[in-house]
């Protein structure tokens, strides 16, 4: 992450024309001199922002702080008053790896999932975006079908793949048996379970990333590409030396947002593997629920939430910096 961040200052300003989202408003001095001043300086403004701030305060800001507090307790779910303050005890258990499964194991599983999901997702999204970037009806239909997989709900799509990965009658094994290959217990074999989940996750999420890249490609300079072609560059040279450098901010954006969403992933683990077999698909995101809601280790679950929050915070800050650059 740090490398992509440090390279931003040189690469980003050149592509300032492109931005995902709506056109940024120009708030110039003209606006500030507006004469509709009296009505719009009314203290009613506080009443206007109050409902939103109240909802965020009650359901996001306070609970976030409360998570920190719960994470310092050996929380008693049946009778919270009986909870015992243990300071950093949950974090000590976490770092020493004495929980079951150990934190470091779930951390490793998370890294495997996030890195594979992000790398495969980003590359595939870029390839698909290059393929369907043009404005024809056919390409628009192709983009729609990628996006359809993204818009379809998580439980429904995970169930679809549960059926595809079914060891006896699933389509995945149908393909293997057609090719005369030995069949695989996709979700029940710890060597393949995570791989299967990654296949599902990439399928489910890549349509959104394709859209970001198509948006990015629309901002790249067609003239530069034409000039490169006229100078005799082959398509690969044109892509790697002309188009890709202009897309770097979009690549960074996609990497960060898909890292954040991969870290939070829960539904596919819940539906497809339940974190198993063994703990081979127990990510931090999955263990958090497991510990807090199934095993009753609420304090430890909260400590995992804090860790997840801190990682997300760092990624979000990087993302905000990228977005700020993009919207220039």
């Amino acid at each position: 992450m740090s490398t992509s961040e440090s390279s931003l200052p040189q690469t980003l300003p050149r592509t300032g024309a492109g931005r995902p989202g709506n056109p940024a408003p120009r708030t110039g001095p003209a606006r500030r001199r507006s004469r509709a001043r009296r009505a719009l300086t009314s203290p009613i403004a506080y009443l206007f922002v109050a409902p939103a701030i109240a909802i965020f305060g009650i359901w996001t800001i306070f609970p976030t702080l409360y998570t920190f507090r719960v994470s310092t307790f050996d929380w008693n779910q049946l009778n919270p008053a009986m909870s015992e303050f243990i300071g950093l005890g949950n974090y000590r258990d976490m770092l020493s790896g004495s929980t079951n499964p150990s934190f470091w194991q779930t951390f490793g599983v998370s890294c495997y999932f996030v890195i594979a999901n992000v790398v495969v997702g980003t590359i595939l999204a870029l390839l698909l975006a290059l393929l369907v970037r043009r404005g024809s009806k056919l390409m628009a239909a192709a983009r729609t079908s990628f996006f359809l997989a993204y818009i379809a709900p998580g439980v429904a799509t995970a169930l679809i793949w549960l059926w595809i990965f079914n060891p006896r009658f699933g389509l995945a094994n149908g393909v293997l048996s057609l090719l005369h290959l030995p069949v695989i217990d996709w979700l029940g074999d710890s060597r393949y379970a995570m791989l299967s989940i990654i296949v599902y996750s990439v399928w489910h999420e890549v349509g959104f990333l394709v859209l970001v890249f198509v948006g990015g490609l629309m901002t790249t300079s067609g003239e530069l590409s034409e000039a490169a072609k006229v100078d005799g560059a082959n398509p690969w040279q044109e892509f790697s030396r002309v188009t890709l450098p202009q897309l770097i901010p979009y690549v960074a954006f996609v990497v960060i947002i898909s890292s954040i969403s991969s870290l939070q992933a829960f539904t596919q683990f819940f539906v497809l593997t339940g974190g198993g077999p063994g703990y081979s698909t127990s990510t931090i995101g999955f263990q958090l629920y497991q510990q807090a809601f199934v095993l009753g280790n609420t304090g430890y679950g909260a400590a995992l939430a804090v860790v997840l929050f801190l990682i997300t915070l760092v990624l979000s800050i990087i993302q905000l910096r990228i977005s700020a650059r993009l919207s220039r």
């Binding site: 939103a52 701030i53 965020f56 359901w59 996001t60 800001i61 609970p63 976030t64 409360y66 998570t67 719960v70 919270p80 954040i260 870290l263 939070q264 829960f266 995101g285 958090l288 629920y289 807090a292 809601f293 609420t298 679950g301 909260a302 939430a305 804090v306 997840l308 929050f309 997300t312 915070l313 979000s316 800050i317």
Partner: peptide, 19 residues
Amino acid sequence: LVMSVMMVPQTVLLVPNFL
């Protein structure tokens, strides 16, 4: 403050909000 709310993922909020 409002924008910073975006940085808190649902996963983090579930345990405290449940309690």
